[in-house]
Computed example of a mutant assay.
Amino acid sequence: MKLNDEINREIMFHEDAEVEIRSANDNSAKQIDDIRYFVSHGFDIIIVSPNEATTLTPVIREVYGNGMPVVIFDRNINDNTYTARIGVDDEGIGRSAATYARNLAGDNAKAIEIGGLEGSTPAYGRHKGFASEFESLGGTLLASVAADWNKEDAIRVADSLYVVFQNSR
């Protein structure tokens, strides 16, 4: 991940600082365990990209409430109990994608939306922006499904939906 590379590059300029990076591999329970590990081992700050907002909000709220700085990166939680958030306008990204799709497909456009990890704030925001904008531009959203940010899952889901919609003609 690019953020990890940038953190590791920056830490080289600070002899007195340590960084430990852990990956939960899209497993919210492991991510919660990792956050608790950092707290119990006396780290000074946590930077986290919450896998699922609803699942991670309570532990981040607790850690922040106990005085530990928490920086939320990319994804969000269902609360404002963090020190800072670095992220993008996910709904805006969804609206832009809808405009692009509508321009490619023309009038009476129909689309299937293949999104990211269900329960993640980027997937939710992008879906919300895409669906509302696509329909406001006269398009019809036939289906919206999650593919967990995974190319293989996206291909499988797209193939399945293609068969379903071909057979329903």
Rank of each mutant, 00 (worst) to 15 (best):
R9C: 01
I155G: 00
S40F: 02
I21A: 06
T54H: 07
R85P: 05
N150M: 00
A17F: 13
S132E: 15
G67Q: 10
I86A: 09
G138F: 09
F134E: 01
D5Q: 14
L142M: 15
A84Q: 11
A17R: 12
D26M: 11
F73D: 08
F73C: 06
L141R: 04
N66V: 05
F38Y: 14
G129I: 12
R126V: 12
E135V: 14
I32D: 03
E113A: 08
K151R: 15
I46A: 03
L3D: 03
I7K: 01
A24P: 15
G125S: 06
E6S: 12
T55S: 14
V59W: 06
G138E: 03
E20A: 05
N150F: 00
S168N: 10
A53I: 04
N78E: 15
V145F: 03
G87L: 07
Y162R: 06
Y100G: 00
S144H: 08
G92C: 07
N78W: 02
I86Q: 01
P122F: 09
I86E: 02
Y64H: 15
D5I: 08
L141K: 05
Q31G: 09
A131T: 14
G119C: 09
I21S: 13
A24T: 07
R36T: 15
I114N: 01
F13D: 10
A29M: 10
G42F: 11
S160Y: 07
S96N: 11
M12N: 08
T140F: 04
I77G: 04
P69R: 10
H127F: 11
S160G: 06
Q166E: 14
T140S: 12
F43N: 06
I155S: 02
F38C: 09
V70M: 09
R156A: 11
